[in-house]
Design a protein around this nucleic acid. Structure first.
Lengths: 144, 144
DNA sequence: ATAAATGTAATAACTGAAGTTACATGAAGC
DNA sequence: GCTTCATGTAACTTCAGTTATTACATTTAT
């Protein structure tokens, strides 16, 4: 499977948008993310619908932040993307008749649910401001 | 991406093998797992190399357990399968030049590593005997 | 010998993200 | 009004990785 990098992509885009004064075009985001402007629009669409960013059309248009960076967490962003599947591993059959397979599924699901809960908790603890702070920290470290 | 169900599949197969007296053929495993005998051989190959199962060729051959079910855990099985990727989500670029992207990656990687560590810990706590016990429990529950 | 089993290579099918092309729509500037 | 620059979106292709299938070699018991 090709790995889903939408979360990584939009976070990267958001930080660039936050750093820019006016709106940032899909083209600009695409070039700094090494992808295609159409992909940017498609991916950002979820965040737009969730109200985290806004897009202005026409001359001098583009994307800008439309939320409080202190309140929005990585978990919110993940949800806005439609909560894509986290695991590449899963059960072969979600509703098996075989009692053996049901047992295997139950044990695996327990473990996966615990791991997912932890991941979501972590995501919920990181605001976009904190993410930007991580960048600032790295920037000053490099400068010194 | 199609989800990787090899772990689920081999565990299902192992429990069936453990329940059978003699060796179990790939055909038998395949039909109870709803797949193809070639897929069974290919998937079981890792466990065979790890010494968890053995395969006998020729007449009245097939697969049988070759390990202590109390000592082998789901984690061992996952390793024997070649430690396939756990997450369907990942960074767009693993070694980015952009400091913004590096920051995003670092924060995401932290969270993913924590979730993976928890999952592996859970897997390490479940032996094949415990898995079989889960089946026995379900069986008696259904009978009552 | 024959039949029954695994071992494995080669190839196609399937799935979902990512990439691309094309065109409609809207807003600013002239 | 017209042009230009931007997003919105549909349709299609590409790509990667598991799964499925076909084919054939090899081993073992009868």
């Amino acid at each position: 499977m090709k790995r889903d990098s939408r979360l990584s992509s939009v976070l990267h885009g958001l930080l660039h948008m936050a750093a820019n004064e006016g709106p940032t075009t899909s083209d600009a985001l695409a070039s700094c993310m090494g992808t295609n402007p159409v992909v940017v629009r498609r991916t950002m669409a979820g965040l737009r619908e969730a109200g985290f960013v806004k897009a202005e059309r026409g001359h001098s248009g583009g994307w800008s932040i439309a939320c409080d960076l202190e309140r929005v967490t990585l978990r919110d962003i993940h949800q806005a993307l439609g909560e894509p599947a986290i695991f590449a591993i899963g059960n072969r059959n979600e509703t098996p008749e075989c009692l053996v397979e049901q047992s295997v599924n139950a044990v695996l699901d327990d473990a996966f649910e615990a791991a997912e809960a932890l991941l979501m908790q972590r995501f919920g603890e990181v605001t976009l401001v904190a993410l930007a702070g991580e960048f600032t920290r790295r920037l000053s470290r490099r400068r010194s």
